[in-house]
Simulated scan of single mutants.
Amino acid sequence: MYYEVYIDLLFLINFMMDYLLLLAVRKIAVFDSPRVRILPGALVGAFLTCLTVAVPLPAVVKMVCFHLLINSAMILTGLRIRSLRQFVRVYLMLYAGGFLLGGIFGFFRQYIRTGSLFFLFAVISYELLGIIWKLMRHMQRMGTYTCRIQLRIGDKMTEITGLFDTGNNLEDPQTGNPVCVVEKEAVKDLLTEKGERPVRYICCRSIGDENGLLPLVKFDSLHISGEEDRTIEDVWIGISDTKISANGIYKMILNPDILVGGVK
């Protein structure tokens, strides 16, 4: 059987799909890699795919290239990998994301009549994958997940225990960023650093107070310590005058959405 392959079209299709797939894995795995770094990763994946198709190789060698070498090169080039464990995790996520993305796109393929629609439905498939992941993440309860938090203002820093709370959907209406809340008593030493800090107020709802005002203070950085360390610079955090935890186990409530892309 004879097939005619247009190498330029093959490269373009693979480049776009690889880019969307790496972008999805970056979002799901919560990587701090800059988005522009994904571009060379997708280019490497598309180039190696075309090279493997064009060069006459035994079928078993092509299979190893497609399923091991090319994917590994994409991950190492497009994402900031720090350990073998992280690499294995991302490798599995790449296949899982590819499976979901391919399934969603496969559903739309029946409606594709022209080549230009391919790219439109590819982007739509990526957006749907993001929605599905967000729904799955919200379904997974994180109410008992605590972590160590480092807050910094100027030269001062304090370390406290924070709690991820799926019930915390508080957002800053000015920026659309998720808002975390910390006890005032836990950060009182930081708030005196370098004089008065910028303060804004947002509306919030709590038990016994349906129309409360929560002050937001700008911190220089918020660092979350866990399996994947994450640092967010110039973040606005709500300051609570009351205790967050009755038993004092944690001093801060984290909005889980802060891990999805950080803040704008």
Rank of each mutant, 00 (worst) to 15 (best):
1 M>S: 12
3 Y>T: 12
8 D>M: 09
8 D>F: 03
17 M>V: 07
18 D>T: 04
19 Y>C: 07
22 L>V: 13
26 R>D: 04
27 K>F: 10
28 I>E: 01
30 V>H: 12
31 F>E: 00
31 F>Y: 04
33 S>P: 06
36 V>P: 04
36 V>A: 08
36 V>S: 15
37 R>E: 03
38 I>R: 03
38 I>A: 02
39 L>V: 15
41 G>R: 04
43 L>Q: 09
47 F>C: 13
49 T>W: 00
54 A>C: 14
60 V>W: 15
61 V>C: 07
63 M>R: 10
66 F>R: 05
73 A>G: 04
79 L>N: 02
83 S>D: 01
85 R>N: 01
86 Q>F: 00
90 V>Q: 01
91 Y>Q: 06
93 M>C: 06
93 M>P: 01
95 Y>M: 05
96 A>G: 08
96 A>H: 04
97 G>L: 03
101 L>A: 02
102 G>L: 03
103 G>R: 04
104 I>C: 00
106 G>H: 06
107 F>E: 05
111 Y>A: 14
113 R>K: 10
117 L>S: 05
122 A>S: 15
126 Y>S: 12
126 Y>E: 05
126 Y>V: 14
127 E>R: 13
127 E>Y: 10
131 I>Q: 06
134 K>F: 08
135 L>K: 14
141 R>K: 14
147 C>S: 09
149 I>A: 02
150 Q>R: 14
154 G>A: 09
156 K>P: 01
156 K>Q: 15
158 T>Q: 02
160 I>Q: 04
160 I>E: 00
165 D>H: 03
165 D>N: 06
172 D>G: 08
182 V>N: 01
183 E>C: 06
186 A>N: 01
192 T>H: 13
194 K>V: 12
194 K>A: 12
194 K>M: 12
196 E>W: 08
197 R>P: 06
198 P>E: 11
200 R>A: 09
201 Y>Q: 11
205 R>C: 14
206 S>V: 07
207 I>P: 03
207 I>S: 09
208 G>C: 08
208 G>I: 08
213 L>C: 11
214 L>Q: 00
214 L>D: 02
216 L>M: 05
217 V>T: 15
217 V>I: 14
218 K>V: 11
218 K>Y: 06
219 F>L: 06
221 S>H: 08
233 E>D: 13
240 S>V: 08
241 D>A: 10
244 I>N: 00
249 I>V: 14
250 Y>E: 03
251 K>Q: 15
255 N>R: 13
263 V>C: 10
264 K>S: 13
